[in-house]
Protein backbone atom coordinates (compact mmCIF):
# COMPACT_ATOMS: atom_id res chain seq x y z
CA UNK A 1 0.00 0.00 0.00
CA UNK A 2 2.75 2.42 1.02
CA UNK A 3 4.66 1.50 -2.10
CA UNK A 4 1.67 2.25 -4.33
CA UNK A 5 1.17 5.50 -2.53
CA UNK A 6 4.75 6.67 -2.92
CA UNK A 7 4.76 5.54 -6.54
CA UNK A 8 1.63 7.61 -7.12
CA UNK A 9 3.30 10.60 -5.50
CA UNK A 10 6.38 10.15 -7.63
CA UNK A 11 4.24 9.96 -10.74
CA UNK A 12 2.52 13.16 -9.70
CA UNK A 13 5.81 14.91 -9.08
CA UNK A 14 7.06 13.71 -12.43
CA UNK A 15 3.89 14.97 -14.11
CA UNK A 16 4.36 18.34 -12.54
CA UNK A 17 7.88 18.60 -13.93
CA UNK A 18 6.84 17.37 -17.35
CA UNK A 19 4.23 20.08 -17.52
CA UNK A 20 6.83 22.62 -16.50
CA UNK A 21 4.71 23.63 -13.50
CA UNK A 22 2.18 25.30 -15.75
CA UNK A 23 -0.69 23.65 -13.97
CA UNK A 24 -1.71 23.51 -10.35
CA UNK A 25 0.06 20.68 -8.54
CA UNK A 26 -2.10 17.91 -7.11
CA UNK A 27 -1.01 16.43 -3.79
CA UNK A 28 -2.23 13.51 -1.66
CA UNK A 29 -5.29 12.74 -3.74
CA UNK A 30 -7.59 9.92 -2.69
CA UNK A 31 -11.06 8.62 -3.47
CA UNK A 32 -13.33 7.29 -0.78
CA UNK A 33 -14.06 3.59 -0.97
CA UNK A 34 -17.71 2.91 -1.92
CA UNK A 35 -19.92 0.14 -3.18
CA UNK A 36 -21.90 0.55 -6.38
CA UNK A 37 -25.18 0.58 -4.39
CA UNK A 38 -24.15 3.88 -2.82
CA UNK A 39 -24.16 5.33 -6.36
CA UNK A 40 -21.68 8.04 -5.41
CA UNK A 41 -18.28 8.71 -3.98
CA UNK A 42 -15.93 11.65 -3.61
CA UNK A 43 -12.32 12.49 -4.45
CA UNK A 44 -10.21 14.69 -2.20
CA UNK A 45 -6.82 16.33 -2.77
CA UNK A 46 -4.71 19.39 -2.20
CA UNK A 47 -4.30 21.74 -5.16
CA UNK A 48 -1.24 23.97 -5.11
CA UNK A 49 -1.23 26.77 -7.59
CA UNK A 50 2.20 28.36 -7.97
CA UNK A 51 1.41 30.57 -10.96
CA UNK A 52 -1.35 32.91 -12.04
CA UNK A 53 -4.77 32.44 -10.51
CA UNK A 54 -6.84 29.70 -12.08
CA UNK A 55 -9.85 27.59 -11.29
CA UNK A 56 -10.81 23.95 -11.41
CA UNK A 57 -13.86 23.99 -13.68
CA UNK A 58 -14.65 20.35 -14.40
CA UNK A 59 -13.54 16.75 -13.98
CA UNK A 60 -14.14 13.44 -15.73
CA UNK A 61 -13.73 9.82 -14.76
CA UNK A 62 -14.52 6.54 -16.48
CA UNK A 63 -15.78 5.08 -13.17
CA UNK A 64 -18.68 7.55 -12.89
CA UNK A 65 -21.48 8.62 -15.17
CA UNK A 66 -21.17 12.23 -14.11
CA UNK A 67 -18.46 14.09 -12.22
CA UNK A 68 -19.29 17.36 -10.48
CA UNK A 69 -17.63 19.83 -8.14
CA UNK A 70 -19.34 20.05 -4.76
CA UNK A 71 -18.94 21.69 -1.40
CA UNK A 72 -20.41 21.21 2.04
CA UNK A 73 -21.78 23.99 4.16
CA UNK A 74 -21.91 23.23 7.88
CA UNK A 75 -24.92 25.28 8.90
CA UNK A 76 -25.07 24.98 12.72
CA UNK A 77 -24.51 21.24 12.55
CA UNK A 78 -26.70 20.63 9.50
CA UNK A 79 -24.56 19.53 6.57
CA UNK A 80 -25.73 20.98 3.28
CA UNK A 81 -24.06 19.61 0.16
CA UNK A 82 -24.20 21.84 -2.90
CA UNK A 83 -22.94 21.77 -6.46
CA UNK A 84 -20.58 24.57 -7.42
CA UNK A 85 -19.52 25.68 -10.89
CA UNK A 86 -15.81 25.97 -10.14
CA UNK A 87 -13.18 25.88 -7.42
CA UNK A 88 -11.04 29.00 -7.35
CA UNK A 89 -7.28 28.42 -7.15
CA UNK A 90 -5.64 31.72 -6.16
CA UNK A 91 -1.99 32.17 -7.20
CA UNK A 92 0.55 30.98 -4.65
CA UNK A 93 -2.03 29.23 -2.50
CA UNK A 94 -3.04 25.69 -1.62
CA UNK A 95 -6.72 24.78 -1.74
CA UNK A 96 -7.81 21.74 0.26
CA UNK A 97 -10.46 19.45 -1.10
CA UNK A 98 -11.17 17.52 2.08
CA UNK A 99 -13.86 15.53 3.88
CA UNK A 100 -16.57 17.85 5.11
CA UNK A 101 -15.80 20.52 2.50
CA UNK A 102 -14.88 20.86 -1.16
CA UNK A 103 -14.76 17.64 -3.16
CA UNK A 104 -14.89 16.17 -6.63
CA UNK A 105 -18.15 14.25 -6.66
CA UNK A 106 -18.40 10.97 -8.55
CA UNK A 107 -22.04 10.35 -9.45
CA UNK A 108 -23.45 7.11 -10.79
CA UNK A 109 -20.59 4.75 -9.95
CA UNK A 110 -20.08 2.05 -12.56
CA UNK A 111 -18.21 -0.25 -10.18
CA UNK A 112 -17.28 -0.70 -6.51
CA UNK A 113 -14.34 1.40 -5.36
CA UNK A 114 -12.38 -0.96 -3.15
CA UNK A 115 -9.60 0.12 -0.82
CA UNK A 116 -6.32 -0.39 -2.65
CA UNK A 117 -7.90 0.14 -6.08
CA UNK A 118 -7.23 3.21 -8.11
CA UNK A 119 -9.29 5.20 -10.58
CA UNK A 120 -8.58 7.55 -13.43
CA UNK A 121 -9.59 11.17 -13.01
CA UNK A 122 -9.09 14.07 -15.40
CA UNK A 123 -9.13 17.59 -14.01
CA UNK A 124 -10.03 20.48 -16.32
CA UNK A 125 -8.74 23.96 -15.47
CA UNK A 126 -10.05 27.37 -16.48
CA UNK A 127 -7.36 27.86 -19.14
CA UNK A 128 -8.58 24.70 -20.86
CA UNK A 129 -5.60 22.59 -19.77
CA UNK A 130 -6.18 19.11 -18.37
CA UNK A 131 -4.37 16.85 -15.91
CA UNK A 132 -4.88 13.13 -15.88
CA UNK A 133 -4.43 11.43 -12.52
CA UNK A 134 -4.50 7.95 -11.02
CA UNK A 135 -6.32 8.33 -7.72
CA UNK A 136 -5.82 5.71 -4.99
CA UNK A 137 -8.93 4.48 -3.19
CA UNK A 138 -8.80 4.69 0.62
CA UNK A 139 -11.14 3.56 3.31
CA UNK A 140 -9.35 5.24 6.14
CA UNK A 141 -8.49 8.87 5.85
CA UNK A 142 -5.10 9.36 7.40
CA UNK A 143 -4.81 13.01 6.70
CA UNK A 144 -8.36 13.58 7.84
CA UNK A 145 -7.25 12.51 11.29
CA UNK A 146 -4.43 15.01 11.14
CA UNK A 147 -6.82 17.74 10.12
CA UNK A 148 -9.19 16.92 12.94
CA UNK A 149 -6.34 17.19 15.42
CA UNK A 150 -5.35 20.55 13.95
CA UNK A 151 -8.92 21.80 14.16
CA UNK A 152 -9.02 20.70 17.76
CA UNK A 153 -5.84 22.55 18.58
CA UNK A 154 -7.36 25.67 17.07
CA UNK A 155 -10.34 25.08 19.31
CA UNK A 156 -12.75 25.27 16.38
CA UNK A 157 -14.60 22.09 17.25
CA UNK A 158 -16.92 21.61 20.20
CA UNK A 159 -16.22 18.80 22.70
CA UNK A 160 -18.57 15.84 23.10
CA UNK A 161 -21.92 17.05 24.34
CA UNK A 162 -23.76 15.36 27.14
CA UNK A 163 -27.45 14.94 26.59
Amino acid sequence: MKLIYSLALWLLAFNAFADAAEQPVVEIPFARAAIIQQRNSAVFMQLQNPLASAALVAARSPVAEVVELHTHINDQGVMRMRKISQIELPAGQTVNLQPGGLHVMLLGLKRDLKPGDSLELTLVFSDGSETQLQIPVHKVMMHKMKQMQEHRMNGSLPPMMKH
Binding site: R32, Q37, Q38, R39, A42, M79, M81
Partner: peptide
Protein backbone atom coordinates in the same frame (compact mmCIF):
# COMPACT_ATOMS: atom_id res chain seq x y z
CA UNK B 1 -28.42 8.40 3.50
CA UNK B 2 -26.42 6.11 1.26
CA UNK B 3 -25.80 8.51 -1.64
CA UNK B 4 -24.15 10.86 0.85
CA UNK B 5 -20.55 10.60 -0.38
CA UNK B 6 -18.69 12.07 2.52
CA UNK B 7 -20.45 13.07 5.74
CA UNK B 8 -22.19 9.76 6.47
CA UNK B 9 -19.24 7.51 5.57
CA UNK B 10 -16.97 9.68 7.72
Amino acid sequence: YMSCPDICPT
